[in-house]
Design a binder for these strands. Structure first.
Length: 198
DNA sequence: TTCTCGATTGTCT
DNA sequence: GACAATCGAGAAA
């Protein structure tokens, strides 16, 4: 079990990053509570060539500033006024790419996650969805801009090798016109912990 | 099972 | 002032 090194996040190909992050483990330690889950579904966003990305086309606002940092930081934003969505900033400084985590398989602190989600039984509904896994892991806007090298939120590799990864169009980005159908969503085939592929 | 719709607030025009 | 990288409840079928 090793924490992912900083260089891991700086590869220039965001699609390779999104695919490569499948099977890796995300940890949070908040208020002394440790929770973790294995990523089973991700999506890639690129500020250079993707209308669905908040930072397209190389748009700089207060919100997108963290996209331009060196890969290895957290980008968390509020969606529909309710849900916090967690992204991993990738690529070198100045290139605004990020990977959205859409669902995880719960591994550590499952009781804590159930409390945060107000569920009394474990099911895919615990962490299957970007808003849901953020709630389960306790991720909020306060984590926006945090380095993944720290001890609040980080990623680790336990040697797990994904068996089969499927690519498909992303979810909820119809507004992105000709980019809406790009197969930039990656998921573990046959995982119980994601919604079904289209 | 598939659908429609409301919640709720930060961000940008 | 419009609207969003979502979710869950409730209705229809």
């Amino acid at each position: 079990m090793t924490k992912l090194p900083e260089q891991y996040y700086q590869q220039p190909d965001v699609l390779a990053a999104a695919r490569g992050l499948i099977g890796k483990i995300i940890y949070t330690r908040l208020d002394g509570l440790l929770t973790a889950g294995r990523k089973v579904e991700t999506e890639a966003y690129s500020g250079a060539c993707d209308k669905a990305c908040h930072a397209y086309p190389y748009k700089r606002t207060a919100r997108t500033e963290v996209f331009y940092a060196k890969g290895g930081k957290a980008y968390v934003y509020l969606c529909y006024g309710i849900h916090h969505l967690f992204n991993i900033v990738t690529n070198r400084a100045g290139e605004p790419d990020a990977v959205l985590v859409r669902s995880i398989e719960p591994l550590v602190g499952i009781d804590v996650m159930m409390q945060r989600r107000k569920l009394d039984a474990v099911s895919y509904r615990l962490t299957a969805g970007p808003g849901l896994l953020s709630a389960a892991l306790g991720i909020s806007k306060q984590l926006n801009g945090l380095s993944l090298m720290g001890d609040t939120i980080w990623l680790a590799d336990d040697g797990y090798l994904p068996r089969e990864i499927m690519a498909s169009p992303r979810v909820g980005v119809d507004f992105a016109e000709e980019h809406a159908d790009l197969p930039w969503r990656f998921r573990l085939s046959n995982s119980q912990w994601t919604s079904k592929a289209k």
